[in-house]
């Protein structure tokens, strides 16, 4: 047992050897030792989801896991999302649809959404809501986020569909009712 841990972490398909205090969380080590500041500090208590990263493909809260436990695990952060110089379809959809305002929740939401689309390329609105239930956003009101995930999913499936514009025009259901 020691106060310092030295580990080779596998982050975004690269090996990074870092030394850090044993009691530091993955969030602290990503931001401080690895300089990957895309992953955000929020509540630090599991309540907001902005620190979400993928560990072996599953969304986890980097504020509540110890970096010392990451030996042999694959970590993905928002910095690993771009494909070469091209934005990931989720990033592109969030930018195009204005699904980010202050942007503080965005990295965490992108990671949770990426894991969802990896497991389920054609999710329903309800499944998207469930997958993002642990991610709080204080700006957007969520509708644009849901639309962006739906649009990115369609793009990834190779469909050329226009995005839903419920956030602008109201829900189709409400429109029919009004007629």
């Amino acid at each position: 047992m020691s106060n310092t841990t030295t580990l080779t972490l596998r982050i975004n398909d690269e090996d990074v050897t870092v030394a850090f205090p044993t009691h530091h969380t993955l969030l602290e080590v990503l931001r401080e030792e690895c300089r990957l500041t895309g992953t955000k500090h929020g509540c630090e208590l599991g309540e907001c989801g902005t620190c979400t990263v993928l560990v072996d493909g599953k969304p986890m809260l980097s504020c509540l896991v110890l970096a010392a436990e990451m030996d042999g695990h694959e970590i993905r952060t928002v910095e690993g999302m771009m494909i070469g110089n091209t934005l990931h379809p989720l990033q592109q959809a969030f930018a195009d649809l204005g699904a980010a305002q202050c942007g503080y929740c965005t990295p965490g939401i992108l990671m949770a959404a990426e894991a969802l689309l990896e497991a389920n390329p054609d999710p329903t609105r309800e499944q998207i809501q469930e997958a993002l239930a642990g991610n709080l956003c204080r700006c957007t009101g969520y509708i644009k986020i849901l639309e962006a995930v739906e649009w990115a999913a369609a793009t990834q499936r190779g469909e050329d569909t226009p995005p839903a514009k419920e956030s602008i025009y109201g829900s189709p259901h409400a429109a029919t009712k009004g007629e």
Partner: peptide
């Protein structure tokens, strides 16, 4: 219970 992220851990 909790969120997907918390249930994963």
């Amino acid at each position: 219970a909790a969120s997907p992220q918390i249930r994963n851990v």
